[in-house]
Amino acid sequence: MEKKILDILADVNDELLTYTGNNMVDDSIVNSFELISIISELEDTFDIEIDAGEVTEENFGNKDRIIALIKRMTGE
């Protein structure tokens, strides 16, 4: 699963794999459109639904947080 998530992130921006900060949008690693692209790719790949309320810094701040969110949502 982790590999699939990292592939999705790398498709948008390689820098996401090495980024160590906590807010990839504020740090201009991705813009809001790219963030939405990541969300829709994750939804399609893992058959999950991510609501607006879940689009937070805690869930989408960096790759580790995204992986943790998807694991939580898929029950892994």
Binding site: S32, I36, V55
Partner: peptide, 8 residues
Amino acid sequence: YVPVTTSS
């Protein structure tokens, strides 16, 4: 933007 794009 985010609520519209993530709406069902």
